[in-house]
């Protein structure tokens, strides 16, 4: 897909989550300790814009399409 390393890490985590409501931003932060919240948010925004992920029960939970 031409993802950056950050986008790829975020996408893979979202894709691997099997919860009905998807993965929370808090869980992403815990799993991606070395990544800043700014970078996580940027990656999420890119993935949303490209239609790879979507928000679920609220704006802090995401699943992959």
């Amino acid at each position: 897909y031409g993802f950056t390393a950050n986008q790829n890490q975020v996408f893979n985590l979202i894709k691997s989550c099997s919860l009905a409501e998807g993965i929370s931003v808090q869980n992403l932060r815990t799993a991606l300790k070395y990544m800043s919240l700014y970078d996580i948010r940027n990656s999420l925004q890119f993935l949303i814009n490209e239609g790879h992920i979507f928000s679920t029960v609220d704006e802090n939970h995401f699943k992959a399409t």
Partner: peptide
Amino acid sequence: NTLTPEQKRKIEENRLKALARRAERLA
């Protein structure tokens, strides 16, 4: 941790919107 029917409906709606956006980007 079960979702309400309304939450399920919203998730499906958002999923379809994202798929449409994906298709748009690929077009």
